[in-house]
Amino acid sequence: MPQIKSLDELRNLRQQVERDISTRRHTGTTIIVGMGTCGIAAGARDTMHAILEELRKREIDANVTTVGCIGMCAKEPLVDVEQAGQPRVTYGNVTPDMVPRMIEEHLVKGQVVEEWVVGRLQSS
């Protein structure tokens, strides 16, 4: 019978995470997915799912968070990539099939996929 997961495992996970912080190099990347009504209607949830899958498969350490409406509804799904010391890059109309390339080029090679960019914000 497969091991049934219990919430108590989070206690051990916490200890592991707290130990790892000192040994593992943090990529310092945060990926932000717009999850307002327009985003959801345009497929943002599946885009988020594709991002989580790709990061898991490639064992890339990046934070993923969701935010409400950002006010660029026609360009949803919107995905921002934020890296320390870099301008925050906003990609528009990001469908799940675009996710592997976005992660390969931006997160792995450090090259912004210019043709998909719809906005940039200087880091504060």
């Binding site: 919430l7 108590d8 989070l10 206690r11 996970l13 916490r14 592991q16 995470v17 707290e18 790892d20 989580l52 990061l55 350490d61 990046a62 934070n63 993923v64 968070t65």
Partner: peptide
Amino acid sequence: LLGDVPLTHPAVR
């Protein structure tokens, strides 16, 4: 159970 470790931490997620 997680203390200061957020739900969004990659391992927790």
